[in-house]
Design a binder for these strands. Structure first.
Length: 590
RNA sequence: AGUGCUGUAGCACAAUGGUUGAGUGCACCCGACUGUCUCUCGGGAGGUUGCGGGUUCGAAUCCCGUCAGCACUGCCA
């Protein structure tokens, strides 16, 4: 027998028991004629004691054991003479009578401790050692708990989990597909799903009514701290529902998950129009933990002879409360440099300081009178001590830039508290987006998203650009603290509307039929109205725990360039394999 | 594809805007210690400064290239 107990469970009440423990040697401390050793497993640490006087051979063997040796010990539990109140098992120790080395261990490349000395890349190369560390195990345990609670809630709500295929068909729309060659069909390829979208819609046609799946999805796009090429979604679909039915169900799920795993009671989720989110926050995923909403100045700042503003499509600013005294000219200059970096790309930054003594200072003081600037202040309800930061330019760009500035100022002013979760729904996204370069529309969400009911007749009948562009999608995103956690929509379930949608997206009827004929065909056999949502599961784990990267919640993640550094994958394959698959490599590396 | 930061001992980092000896901490090895638990104390070993080239009397340091890691932009329907 390898063990009667784990390394985390023995207490003072167990004193006197004969026990068997197995685990890894965390660290040993030689102290004169005694040796203390911490034995570790997933459940905790237990101290082992060896004494040269009681058992010289055993003590000598114990002294030889290095870090991470795997051992099995027999012995008796006894009360410690000096206790350790930092440790759950700190009141007891094991007086070892038998010590068996199950496996020796080389010295690990970094210390396997909660506060490791290893850097990220080294830890990823030896991820199996990194995963021995408490904080990393804690993350995976959290993830497991979140998955269990998700299944529990959705099962109680009557959802059934259905597995959908991983080898499917490539579609050119949207993200790049990972592709798998077919040996039995030379020259042909499967694709890995970016999401089980069409399958879950077909399950609705089948009458399964409420479907969910914790499912791996794949996208062959560049990575970020919050983006991996393979990731997990809580994928759901429901029949005979309106938007508000879906929102209610998944607001319920989100609240339940926060309560069950973190003990956090979330407030009710406000619903924000996409247009308002863009106008007030410059983002479709606003961080509403703090205000500092945008105020537009076109009506009061134009026509005064300041050419930058006069030529701008939009003049818009934020108010940094009480910051007039905190930003020197040098600070403002640095902030201006920051926002002019190519990643943000603003042309310049205008400030107005309403100083505590009533003076007004501004970078555009020579173009505007004090009354002008006071007028701006009124729009912001600025008080003495406040500072305005103003950008101008093309509407879309300037909103995006000011969004970055707002978030940066929020961070600097300590307004983005990690203790608070502020969820909201963003709704009524545009249905179509005009692509200037390609000169055609593409779906903002995806081509199966239904337009809002009011727009359906117009879309079916009109080809007028402005009507099409103004159409709203019956789509919704869940945003928490400025992170997009999930998104979904009410789907199209009518063949004619779906055909019209593909037509607007530039598909020929033949191309639409070739790619999505199976779905449109299904719609003709009694498809119910339906809609759904998908949550980014990895992302949900990381935001719930304030992690910087979703990698912390993925057992074996890929690095920045999509490589698994532990496996050293991807890698070339054998000539024989290539031949069998009827494929050839034409370029080694670009 | 682009921009930025980083690369020095097993690990984390230091070394003036160029020259003398590339150091510190952790880990490791040896020794001392009967109540340690971040033990303590004494001693020791450990380096192609990512790689290639250039400038110079002299390069970890400056220049060019390259590779790798990270962050961001594009991209992610």
């Amino acid at each position: 027998m390898y063990r009667t107990h784990t390394c985390g469970e023995l207490r003072l009440a167990d004193a006197g028991k004969q026990v068997v423990l197995s685990g890894w040697v965390q660290r040993s401390r030689k102290f004169g004629k005694m040796t203390f050793m911490d034995l570790r497993d997933r459940y905790g640490l237990t101290q082992l004691v060896f004494s040269e006087e009681d058992n010289p051979q055993l003590n000598e063997l114990a002294e030889k054991l290095g870090r991470e040796f795997v051992v099995r010990v027999e012995g008796s539990v006894r009360e410690r003479t000096s206790k350790n109140d930092q440790l759950p098992t700190g009141e007891i120790e094991i007086e070892v009578t038998t010590l068996e080395v199950l496996n020796a261990a080389k010295l690990p490349p970094f210390t396997i401790e909660d506060e490791t000395d290893g850097g990220d890349d080294l830890r990823m190369k030896y991820r199996y050692l990194d995963l021995r560390r408490g904080p990393v195990q804690k993350n995976l345990i959290f993830r497991s708990k979140l998955a269990t609670e998700t299944r529990k809630y959705l099962a109680d709500e009557g959802f059934i989990e259905v597995e959908t295929p991983v080898l499917i068909k490539s579609t050119p729309e949207g993200a790049r597909d990972f592709v798998v060659p077919s040996r039995m069909n030379p020259g042909q390829f499967y694709a890995l799903p970016q999401s089980p979208q069409t399958f879950k819609q077909l399950l609705m046609v089948s009458g399964l009514d409420k479907y969910f799946q914790l499912v791996k999805c794949f996208r062959d796009e560049d990575l970020r701290a919050d983006r991996q090429p393979e990731f997990t979604q809580i994928d759901c679909e429901m029949s005979f529902v309106t938007r508000d039915d879906v929102l209610a169900t998944f607001e319920g799920l989100t609240k339940y998950l926060f309560k069950a795993t973190l003990g956090v009671e979330l407030p009710d989720f406000p619903i924000m129009q996409y247009d308002d989110a863009m106008r007030l926050y410059g983002s479709d995923k606003p961080d509403i933990r703090f205000g500092m909403t945008f105020v537009e100045l076109n009506d009061v700042a134009k026509g005064k002879g300041f050419q930058v503003f006069d030529g701008a499509e939009l003049i818009v600013g934020i108010k940094a409360e009480g910051q007039a005294g905190n930003f020197s000219n040098k600070d403002i200059k640095n902030l201006t440099e920051w926002i002019k970096r190519p990643q943000i790309g603003a042309k310049g930054l205008v400030y107005v300081k309403f100083e505590g003594d009533g003076n007004i200072k501004s970078s555009v003081g020579k173009f505007f009178t004090e009354d002008d600037l006071k007028g701006w202040g009124e729009k912001f309800e600025a008080k003495p001590g406040d500072m305005l930061l103003i950008l101008s330019g093309e509407t879309d760009k300037v909103r995006k830039q000011l969004n970055e500035l707002r978030l940066e100022m929020g961070t600097r002013m300590g307004l983005r508290s990690k203790d608070r979760f502020e969820p909201l729904w963003v709704v009524d996204f545009p249905w179509l987006e005009w692509d200037e370069e390609m000169e055609h529309f593409h779906a903002m969400h995806h081509p199966f998203t239904s337009p809002s009911v009011d727009f359906i007749p117009k879309i079916m009948e009109s080809d007028e650009f402005n009507i099409l562009k103004s159409a709203k999608a019956n789509a919704y995103d869940l945003v928490i603290n400025g992170w997009e956690i999930g998104g979904g929509s009410i789907r199209i379930h009518d063949r004619k509307l779906q055909e019209r949608c593909f037509e607007l997206l530039g598909f020929t009827p033949e191309a639409a039929e070739a790619q999505f004929g199976f779905l449109m065909g299904a719609f003709e056999f009694g498809a119910p109205p339906h809609g759904g949502i998908a949550f980014g599961f990895d992302r949900l784990c990381s935001i719930m725990n304030h992690a910087d990267s979703i990698r912390d919640y993925i057992a074996f993640p890929k690095n920045n360039s999509g490589r698994d550094v532990m496996l050293d994958a991807p890698a070339p394959i054998d000539e024989i394999q290539m031949k069998e698959l009827a494929i050839a490599v034409t370029v080694e590396k670009e």
